[in-house]
Design a protein around this nucleic acid. Sequence first.
DNA 1: ATATTTGTATTGTATATACAAGTGTTCTTG
DNA 2: CAAGAACACTTGTATATACAATACAAATAT
Lengths: 235, 235
Amino acid sequence: MAQPKFAQIKQHIISKIKSGEWAEHSRVASENELAEQFSVSRMTARRALSELTDAGILSRTQGLGTFVASFKSQSNLLEIRNIADEIKERGSDHRCIPEVLESMPAIAPIAIALGVEQNSQVYRSVLVHLENGTPIQVEERFVNPTFAPGYLQQNFEQITPHEYLCEVAPLTEARHTVEAIMPSAQVSQWLSLFNEEPCLQVIRRTWSSNGVVSFTRLISPGSKYRLGGHLTFKR
Amino acid sequence: MAQPKFAQIKQHIISKIKSGEWAEHSRVASENELAEQFSVSRMTARRALSELTDAGILSRTQGLGTFVASFKSQSNLLEIRNIADEIKERGSDHRCIPEVLESMPAIAPIAIALGVEQNSQVYRSVLVHLENGTPIQVEERFVNPTFAPGYLQQNFEQITPHEYLCEVAPLTEARHTVEAIMPSAQVSQWLSLFNEEPCLQVIRRTWSSNGVVSFTRLISPGSKYRLGGHLTFKR
DNA sequence: ATATTTGTATTGTATATACAAGTGTTCTTG
DNA sequence: CAAGAACACTTGTATATACAATACAAATAT
């Protein structure tokens, strides 16, 4: 069997939807009907329908039937990737310069974000990521020392902070925010920006089961970096 | 039965992982072991494992076993939402002002993005979205007339362009790019920005089965809009 | 010693069956 | 006529079973 039966049925349904033959909200054959059409058991037909439902392509209601889900409900997702992976995948050279590695008292917004007491000591690291020698991202990270007491002793040219934290504290959740900002003079200098230029700022908070592990700002110049699209063709 | 058996098993596994008891890449009980532990059939235990695998929490290899997936592989996804929905969900008032609604010849980059001949006629709309009277997003959209010949006759104070296009052409795919830019003078005016301010620009291309339906630029000021985070507490 | 075979544990696919539970229609009854 | 009961059809949960396919280790043959 080249393809398993349930996969063939999935393909069949997807092609009907993509071709526009089955419109949004239109009824899809029931499990029993599909089973008969394809000469399979109900459980096999059911598997095809269930997996497409999990994928958000179909929508089912007990007692009513199965329907083509509305395209609107399919959320538009954007993947936030690791800059090092992204650079390597492009076949470019990735390097990383640690600029700051220190312990400092947490000022109010940092303390709130990390869930620690104000002015308690937290770790701070600033790394600059280079693609073929050009600075492309500043990574400023504040770390809760409770979860990663050995943070300051790491060599971040060898292991990325994110990898280290994953090893030390089992991460359970991450939240992201994306915004457009003008970089501070210090950040401009790290990014070697001579003219004022808008930057994309990604803020990430990572959680372990007991609280916030780290709070990170990723800042990239708008002219050299964008999220989501792989800017393959340069102008 | 309060919760179905397969869901209870899923819960059990998730709690073990979240608590850190089961580390990354560590082995999870096999289907048969789980079946015995919970006094269920192998198929029920299997369902729990399969669904967690689909969700990216576990990873399975035939012949080898089931393992806790690495947190790293869990991609960080950001949802790009509809501005109108977002505003309404915040309990604010949403209004929309159509600024431009015209047919125009496609200049090179637009023609390429839409997959039409250069200088052929395409439709263009510019809408300004307001939250409680404050401009918060400019939506500039270029539409392939082949898929939506009646586009210019719509009243976009009643129906959003996206909703209309979904009705007219069955959308099958959408791709997004996010970047930071400085707005043009015209955009600044539409957004009522008096000072130069960086903006978040989302570029979206939507596809039907036969080609690109529309090409959209969503521009929002960095001070009033961010992606992903619900900025609940204002300063 | 090295290759081959065999065996075992595991996940993957597929079927037949049973009953529960939700939805809507039709029939019955007051 | 209207309320309720019965029914048909749907998806949801659960089980028992069979065999295929893969990975790895151990036994065996060369």
